[in-house]
Write a protein that binds this DNA or RNA. Structure first.
Lengths: 189, 189
DNA sequence: GTCTATAACGTGATAGAC
DNA sequence: GTCTATCACGTTATAGAC
């Protein structure tokens, strides 16, 4: 039960969220965790290995959170709304999506956990949207798969917009607007 | 008419688009442009200055492109559609939005051109959406300002999703889904 | 399992010749 | 205005003692 390993992982998760992969050095992580060089390279193969391990844990945490928000006990569009209008801090980025524009995303070990999260989210949203269609809350000719992508993009792009505009609430206004459109897209006539 | 200055700027724009700010070194730009250290530091104060100058030019180019796509000769929602369903290559990022998650976005010289582009885009979209409302193509109780943010977020998030999923068309499916929702959000009854 | 010392390299920037 | 040589520093990683 190595406590230094846990400390390194905890600090890595925090710093990767705040700064991304390229801007976080092994040294930064060591200093933040209180562990030395030796512990770092004893427990992990290197920076990439530690980051990949950290992102795997983050991916699991985020998938669990999404599963709670998109819980099947709530019906159709209400479930989507709970996910979409969840209050987010736009001054930070998505703990996983923020790595998408880094060159290191080409590393399979980093992209894997991120890809897995987005696939999980898409699956949950498609189920919720299909449920909404069965309940007559959403027009049948709209494609759940495409809408799910759009919903995820609204959130991810909201983070981008909030950071660029220094308006930490832009992401929440974007989500609310998307929800308003979804609520209107009910069967016509 | 210094040709090395132009070459440095041209290479900087290309490399910044491909790799972002942090992952692009002055040396990379020198090598790509054929200019040496001397030219680099003669024409620019340093990496930040060159990048800021490059992003200012990119911002102007992108604003002009947006003005063409959202040209007022086309009515309301058709204008929005021309912007939203424009085919984009999801394997690259937005030439400006891609910097949003880098720590260097806190530098006012870098954020300025990016912020200016998003503000310009928002203005054009708000006008188009208000025009659509006047023409009865869009419900009056929807807020153009919020919808504009959502539309921009859909595009920016589409890039994120495309890169993370390695699906260069995800961005275009997201845009099409958003457009489908907008088309349905006409006055009810 | 953890530490400190150090290596090999790349980065952003400066100096000074031409 | 452009070049080459060089610097101080930070990065990722290794070596070897404890």
């Amino acid at each position: 039960m190595s406590s230094k390993r846990d400390a390194l992982l905890k600090s890595a998760k925090k710093l990767l969220w705040e700064r991304g992969f390229e801007a976080t050095s092994p040294r930064d992580i060591q200093d933040a965790s209180g562990a030395g060089q030796g512990s770092f390279y004893h427990h992990f193969d290197g920076k990439l290995d530690l980051a990949a391990t950290a992102l795997e844990e983050v991916s699991i945490e985020m998938c669990e959170l999404a599963s709670e928000l998109l819980d099947e006990t709530v019906g159709g569009l209400d479930r989507v709304e709970r996910f979409l209008v969840q209050q987010r801090d736009g001054s930070k980025g998505c703990r996983l999506g923020r790595f998408a524009m880094e060159a290191s995303i080409s590393e399979a070990k980093l992209r894997g956990p991120i890809d897995a999260y987005f696939r999980h989210l898409e699956t949950l949203l498609v189920e919720a949207l299909a449920d909404a269609q069965r309940k007559g809350q959403l027009a049948d000719d709209l494609m759940p798969a495409d809408l799910a992508q759009m919903i995820i993009a609204t959130v991810q792009g909201g983070f981008v917009l909030s950071r660029a505009r220094r308006d930490k609430d832009a992401i929440n206004r974007s989500g609310a607007a998307a929800m308003a459109l979804l609520r209107r897209a009910t069967k016509t006539r």
